[in-house]
Design a protein around this nucleic acid. Structure first.
Lengths: 210, 210
DNA sequence: TGTACATCAGTGAACGCGCGTTCACTGATGTAC
DNA sequence: TGTACATCAGTGAACGCGCGTTCACTGATGTAC
C-alpha cells in the first residue's frame, strides 16, 4: 500500500503546471460565467484571469484585449447555437423540425446566458472577426434550411427570409423577455417550454397558406 | 439699438445658474445618449455628469448611484413605450391597430436606443422601483388591450397572454437583431418598416382561426 | 538518443487612469413671522 | 414688505480601488541536427 509518490503533494494540491494547455477555452468559460452573473457591464479581463487561476496578463497572449475575448465568446455562442439547430434539424417532419429549432434556440440561450448576453451586442465585438462571422452565418443557414423545408411542405408561397427573421426575432425576444416575464408572473406562470410551444404554434399557423 | 444689458455677457456665454432646475431630466438625457453610444458597459456616472455640465457629485443628490439612474432611464423608456402604444391604439380597426402597435414599438426602440438597451437588463436595475413597475405594466397593459380587441374581432379563441407575449417577443427580438441584420444584408436589404409589416402580417395570420 | 536553441506561454511588478463615494462647503430658494 | 433662517442643490478636493497595458523575465516545449 505504500505510495511510491508519497513525497508529491496530493492530487488536489498538486502544484499546477506552468503551462495551462487549454487556456483560451478556460478563459472563455470563465468569461461566460462572469458575464452570466454580472452582465457585460460587470466584465473585466482581470477578474476573468483570476477565475481561470492565471496571472492577469495571460489573456493578452491569446485574445489581445477585452474585445477579443468577448468576440471569441460570441463566436462560441453562435457555434453552440448552430450545433443545437443542426441536431434539432434531424427531425424529418418539417413542422416538428421547426418546433425543435425553436426549443433548441431558447434552451441553448438559457443554458449559455453569458454567451447570449454578448451575441448581438455588436458594440462590444469585432464584427469582422472571421470566426464570429463563420459561426454566425452557419447558425443562420441552419435556421433558413429548416424554414425552406417547411415552405416545401406546407406553403410554397412562404417568404423564407421573412419567416426566418420572424423565427429568429421571436425566439431571441422570448429569451430577452424571460427574466421579466418570470418576475411578473412569479411561480404560477407557465413553464418556459409551454410558452415556446405556444409561440411556435402561433408562428406556424401564420406560415400556412390562407 | 443700444443694448441696455450690454454689460451682461452675451446669452451664449451667460454664466450658468447655480441651480439647474431640471437636472434629473438632463441627467437621464445624457445617460441615454451615453448608453446609446457605448452600451451599458460604457456607462459611468462621472461621464454623465460631465455631459450634463455638472459636478460629478451632483447625480447622487437625485439618483443615489448608477443603478438608480439606470432604473430611472428604464422607467422613462417604458413610459415612452406606453405613450407610443397608446397613440397607436387610437386606430379603431383591431387588425390595423396591432400593426400600428408593432411599428410604434420598433420605432420607439430605434429612436431611444439608450433607453431600450437598458430596459430588460434586470441585473442593472432596481427591479422593485415603483416607477419602473408602473410604467412597465402600463406598457404591457396597452399591448394586452390591443390584443383583446383583436381577439374580439377575429378569433374569440385566441389566447391573449400567449398572443401578447408573441407580439412583444417578436418586436423586441427584431429590435435586438436589427443591427446584425443590417450588417449582413448591407444597403440592399429591405427597410426596417417593410420587415415590421411583413412580420406583423405573419403574426396576424397566426392569430386567425383555422 | 542526446544536445542546443528558438519559440511559446505565463509571470509579476509597475504605470497611470477613471471610477464611485465621502465630506465639509457654499450658493440659491422658499417659508415663517 | 422685509428679514431671518431652514432646507435644498450643486461644488470641488480627497480617498482608495480595480482596471488595462506594458515590460523584462522565466519556465516549458518542441524542433533541428
Amino acid at each position: 500500500m505504500k505510495d511510491t509518490a508519497s513525497d508529491r503533494p496530493p492530487a488536489a494540491e498538486q502544484t499546477k503546471p506552468y503551462h495551462h494547455r487549454n487556456l483560451p477555452a478556460a478563459l472563455r468559460s470563465a468569461a461566460a460565467d462572469l458575464v452570466g452573473e454580472r452582465g457585460p457591464a460587470g466584465f473585466s479581463l482581470r477578474e476573468v484571469a483570476r477565475r481561470a487561476g492565471v496571472s492577469h496578463a495571460a489573456p493578452a497572449h491569446h485574445f489581445g484585449d477585452t474585445r477579443g475575448l468577448l468576440t471569441s465568446l460570441a463566436a462560441e455562442g453562435f457555434e453552440r447555437l448552430a450545433a443545437a439547430l443542426a441536431a434539432a434539424s434531424e427531425e424529418v417532419d418539417p413542422v416538428q423540425r421547426l418546433r425543435n429549432c425553436g426549443r433548441a434556440y431558447v434552451n441553448t440561450a438559457l443554458e449559455s446566458p453569458g454567451h447570449f448576453a454578448v451575441i448581438f451586442q455588436n458594440d462590444l465585438l469585432n464584427e469582422d472577426d472571421p470566426d464570429l462571422q463563420h459561426h454566425g452565418t452557419e447558425a443562420m443557414m441552419r435556421l433558413i434550411e429548416s424554414v425552406e423545408a417547411l415552405r416545401d411542405e406546407i406553403n410554397p408561397a412562404l417568404d423564407v427570409d421573412n419567416a426566418a427573421t420572424m423565427c429568429w426575432a421571436t425566439m431571441q425576444g422570448l429569451v430577452a423577455l424571460t427574466p421579466t416575464l418570470d418576475h411578473i408572473t412569479g411561480e404560477q406562470g407557465p413553464t418556459i417550454d409551454v410558452v415556446i410551444d405556444a409561440l411556435c404554434t402561433l408562428m406556424l399557423d401564420g406560415f400556412r397558406p390562407r
